[in-house]
């Protein structure tokens, strides 16, 4: 399995897309930190990149990679190896390469310019989102047979998590504004990994606003030790469950 992951990694690095991604992240974060005089504003712009670009690239890259190495996967399947092992090593290869390019591209500048609690929660969010969206992409590409549909589905999913979901929350908040919605918003925010990551950064960045009327509840919940565990746990679930589903589908799939 390790050997297979190694081959996947070689393959990815050889295609240079991942190198371009690393360079892009590095240049953007480095120039953001250099352009703004206070690092908090750079962090703010970085936040947008992490919440939007990182999931998008993770998803698209994973999907394209999956379809491109479809023949390789087929070849491997003819070998005496379990399907589970093959998919997991694919996941490990892709996830590891995306993760390391994120850590080099964003992690190094953040650790260099802003090694504080905001920076660390930014990195945590970025890493978890990378893995979450990689496993979501595996799920969609395992389910869809042809490439166009797979990419379309991945894009739709990204669009849903990045934008539509928040719109829906806003809609719910307005339509049911007569009811106490604090607890429900907490639950709803856990159902979207991007929201969850955003909140964990927000707790460090906008602590003053969050001490206000309703914010205090979120602060009390997510800011506590249990809240941190909760965030990490839910993120883990978001990584594990789609991957597990993908494995299930892949095992039973008629290739």
């Amino acid at each position: 399995m390790l050997k297979l992951s190694k081959y996947v990694l070689y393959d990815i690095v050889r295609s240079k897309v991942i190198l371009a991604y690393t360079a892009f992240l590095f240049l953007v974060s480095f120039s953001l930190f250099n352009m703004e005089e206070n690092s908090s504003k750079a962090i703010l712009s970085l936040l947008n990149i992490i919440l939007i670009v990182v999931p998008l690239i993770s998803m698209i890259f994973t999907t394209i990679h999956y379809y491109n190495s479809y023949e390789f996967i087929e070849l491997m399947l003819s070998q005496p190896m379990s399907r589970r092992k093959i998919l997991l090593s694919e996941y490990a290869g892709v996830g590891l390469s995306l993760l390391s390019s994120f850590l080099i591209g964003v992690g190094v500048p953040v650790l260099f310019f802003s090694p504080d609690s905001i920076g660390f929660s930014l990195l945590f969010t970025g890493c978890s989102l990378t893995l979450v969206f990689t496993s979501l992409a595996f799920l969609t590409s395992v389910m869809a047979r042809d490439k166009a549909r797979g990419i379309g589905f991945a894009l739709l999913l990204w669009f849903y998590f990045a934008l539509i979901y928040d719109g829906l929350i806003l809609l719910i908040l307005f339509n049911f504004s007569d009811y106490p919605l604090e607890k429900i918003t907490l639950v709803l925010s856990a159902l979207n990994p991007i929201d969850l990551g955003r909140i964990s950064i927000m707790l460090k960045m906008d602590v003053s606003a969050l001490m206000g009327y309703t914010g205090a509840l979120y602060k009390d919940f997510f800011g506590s030790g249990a809240g941190t565990l909760f965030t990490a746990g839910i993120m883990l679930l978001w990584i594990v469950i789609p991957l597990w589903l993908a494995l299930r589908v892949f095992k039973r799939k008629d290739l």
């Binding site: 939007i52 918003t185 909140i199 950064i201």
Partner: peptide, 20 residues
């Protein structure tokens, strides 16, 4: 303005949706 009307929507602070 939205937060002023509906304080619960503070949970969406800094989201892509809000900046859009």
């Amino acid at each position: 303005m939205i937060v002023e009307q509906n304080p619960n929507s503070l949970i969406l602070l800094r989201s892509f949706m809000v900046s859009l």
